[in-house]
Structure formats: structure tokens, C-alpha cells
């Protein structure tokens, strides 16, 4: 179904966002895998995470040509945009990324996630806004279903992430 690459700075919640995708996928009866970049990246610097959601058992857990790229900073966008599969989708945080390289063979969607998160009083939930945009643009999961799945992961607060 989809190889998804999520990338950004350490601390933006990239790994958390990736985990929400596989939780939703697993509950939906799909085969899933989640592979983080580990080591020094986890403690700052760039961070990325490979997610596979498929009907078939997952082969390589490493996503090298993503169908969907979720980029939360410029270095990540610049590094991975050229690797996105033809016909794929890029979702980027337009408050942090101004795309220089653009491709006409992929769908490119920006959302000012960090700005929206700050304005709405949820500075740590830019990742969830990104996920919301990803759902809207790709239709990966049903909106209500994914909302429910995400709500189950949140610690008693009601994030206004549903953009």
C-alpha cells in the first residue's frame, strides 16, 4: 500500500508520528513496520523514520523510494524529495520549508504546521497537524478512524490537530 518516510529535527515527534501510522495500520489489519534512525540522531539533529503499511508481508523495513514523504525541516526536504516515487506525495511544513527543488511528477503539499501549532497553543503537536494533512492529501486512512486512533494515543488532552 505505502512506503512512508517521515523526516525532520530530533524532538519534532517524527518517530511518534510514524508510530501513529503503524498503530492505525495494524488495527486496520495491515502488515506494518517502523524503522527509526537511531543513535545520535535521536538526541537532536536530523531524524527520520521508515514506515511500511501493506497488504503483503513487509520485505525491507527501510524505505528508500517513499510513496509518501513527510518533511518537517528543510534539510530533510532537500535530502529526500528527489527520492520520492513518481506519482508519490510530499507533505512538508511550509513554516519551516521553502521548497527550492520542485517536481511535477509528484504531488507536493505544504501546511504551516509549526506556525499553526504555536498559534493554537499546542507547540509540540506540529507533527499531528502534519499527519492530518497527510491523511487529507493521501486518504491513507479514513479521517474518523485515524482521529480515533490518534486520540487513543494522546495523554488526556484533546489536541486540536484536525486541520
Amino acid at each position: 500500500m505505502a512506503g512512508i518516510l517521515l523526516a525532520g529535527f530530533g524532538g519534532q515527534g517524527i518517530l511518534f508520528a510514524g508510530k501513529q501510522l503503524i498503530v492505525a495500520g495494524m488495527k486496520n489489519g495491515k502488515e506494518v513496520s517502523w524503522l527509526p534512525s537511531y543513535g545520535p540522531e535521536m538526541r537532536g539533529g536530523t531524524c527520520n523514520c521508515s514506515v511500511n503499511i501493506d497488504d503483503e508481508p513487509i520485505g525491507s523495513p527501510l524505505v528508500t523510494t517513499p510513496d509518501i514523504l513527510l518533511a518537517m525541516n528543510k534539510p530533510s526536504y532537500d535530502k529526500f524529495v528527489s527520492k520520492v516515487a513518481v506519482g508519490g506525495t510530499v507533505v512538508y511544513d511550509s513554516s519551516l520549508v521553502t521548497p527550492e527543488e520542485t517536481r511535477d511528477d509528484i504531488k507536493s503539499c505544504g501546511v504551516p504546521a509549526t506556525q499553526l501549532a504555536n498559534e493554537n497553543g499546542f507547540p509540540k503537536l506540529a507533527n499531528c497537524i502534519m499527519l492530518g494533512k497527510l491523511m487529507k492529501e493521501t486518504g491513507l486512512f479514513d479521517r474518523e478512524y485515524f482521529c480515533e486512533s490518534l486520540r487513543a494515543a494522546s495523554p488526556r488532552q484533546s489536541p486540536s490537530w484536525a486541520k
Binding site: M26, V32, S33, W34, L35, Y38, P61
Partner: peptide, 10 residues
């Protein structure tokens, strides 16, 4: 190996 150790699956 490191990938199996780090990756998450059901």
C-alpha cells in the same frame, strides 16, 4: 542485527 533490534512490528 541493528535493524531487527530497532524496528517495530506486531
Amino acid at each position: 542485527d541493528g535493524a531487527l533490534g530497532q524496528m517495530m512490528e506486531p
